[in-house]
Amino acid sequence: MIRNNLYLLLSGACLLGYSWIALNYLDPAFSDNKYFNGCLIKAITGIPCPSCGTTRSVLALSRGEILNSVMLNPFGLIVLLILLATPVWILVDLLRKKETLAQCYRYIETLLLCPGVAIPVIAIVLCNWIWNIYKGL
């Protein structure tokens, strides 16, 4: 992907992520209705998907409840890290006229395509999904 497209996509995603978290922060019952809870699978089947509970996990982290957030969904940590790091990284890259984020993105893409990395990652996601269903998020 061309650098500018990638940065545009990432900034858009971050903006949406921040807005979603802000909406849920201001009104904790925002995504707690039966019409739209942010997850298609949960809305249709009632079974949580692997990343259900991420919003609650990020909100718990913002209150400083690390253990609580990991117990909700460990993906919250990854999402918060991405949300915090990406805008700063994009700004630094734009100011320095470099493309370290794009290089890092490409490196992670190739890394995740290696079977040695992909299989453990898939296993972790599946385990997390089973845990999510068990917790009944």
Partner: peptide
């Protein structure tokens, strides 16, 4: 198809809140 970055994005956000999936 090899768009791993976007795939991870979809996975972590419940398929982009279901909208991206559609």
């Amino acid at each position: 198809i090899g768009d791993v970055g976007i795939g991870v994005g979809k996975l972590l956000t419940c398929g982009g809140f279901g909208i991206w999936t559609i």
